[in-house]
Amino acid sequence: MPISQSALFSAAASRTSKAHSRKRAGQPGAFLCHSNKDSKLAFGLQEMLKREGWDIYVDWRDPTMPETPDALTTSRIQNAIIRADWFLFLATENSILSRWCQWEIGYAEGRKQLERIAIVPTTDELGHYHGNEYLKLYNTIGNKPSGGLALYNMLGKGNRVSNL
């Protein structure tokens, strides 16, 4: 089930974590691919996953990143994708149109096991679903009917994200 963007905005408003903190032993870590135009949605997803025990890396919140994207930016993003346990793609209208996001998911696909790539489909305030382009190609993370978030495999079977 997709995550509503309003739920992500709400989670962002209740945000309690820093954008990037040191990962604890045993804690799943993920690189969050998203459009910079969706920073509040990214913060909301980061908060939701933090509540499930995840550490989420947001590249433009990393103080070691150059202010203007360049070759160093590309190298650091590549390294962050490789180091992360998971690669998550926050599917929105903006991220689907972003050349950077498309490059990042392509890079991740070449460097990570497909089981470690997940799309986070969303619905906007008009009810438009974002993420169809990737269904049945990758796992997805979405709302679990009984509450919380779940990782759904390509066949639709879900496990709570806190159990990964």
Rank of each mutant, 00 (worst) to 15 (best):
residue 71 A to G: 08
residue 106 G to F: 06
residue 26 G to L: 07
residue 126 L to E: 15
residue 95 S to H: 01
residue 121 P to A: 12
residue 1 M to P: 09
residue 136 K to Q: 10
residue 101 C to H: 06
residue 128 H to V: 04
residue 9 F to S: 10
residue 2 P to Q: 05
residue 41 L to D: 09
residue 65 M to L: 15
residue 106 G to Q: 04
residue 148 G to E: 05
residue 101 C to D: 00
residue 12 A to S: 14
residue 119 I to G: 11
residue 21 S to I: 04
residue 106 G to N: 10
residue 61 R to P: 02
residue 78 Q to S: 11
residue 10 S to I: 00
residue 110 G to N: 13
residue 16 T to F: 03
residue 77 I to L: 07
residue 67 E to C: 06
residue 54 W to Y: 09
residue 29 G to N: 15
residue 30 A to E: 04
residue 87 F to L: 04
residue 103 W to M: 11
residue 22 R to W: 11
residue 99 R to K: 14
residue 78 Q to E: 15
residue 40 K to C: 09
residue 11 A to L: 01
residue 7 A to S: 15
residue 61 R to E: 13
residue 121 P to G: 06
residue 18 K to E: 13
residue 25 A to M: 11
residue 67 E to M: 13
residue 6 S to E: 15
residue 91 A to H: 02
residue 46 Q to V: 05
residue 132 N to D: 14
residue 35 S to L: 03
residue 29 G to M: 08
residue 21 S to L: 06
residue 141 I to K: 12
residue 57 Y to S: 12
residue 3 I to M: 02
residue 37 K to F: 03
residue 117 I to Q: 01
residue 147 G to S: 05
residue 78 Q to A: 13
residue 138 Y to N: 12
residue 7 A to D: 15
residue 146 S to P: 06
residue 59 D to L: 09
residue 69 P to Y: 12
residue 155 L to I: 02
residue 11 A to M: 03
residue 54 W to L: 13
residue 68 T to D: 08
residue 135 L to Q: 03
residue 9 F to N: 10
residue 139 N to P: 00
residue 121 P to H: 07
residue 14 S to P: 01
residue 106 G to A: 07
residue 53 G to E: 02
residue 35 S to E: 01
residue 59 D to Y: 09
residue 153 N to Y: 04
residue 91 A to D: 05
residue 108 A to C: 05
residue 69 P to R: 15
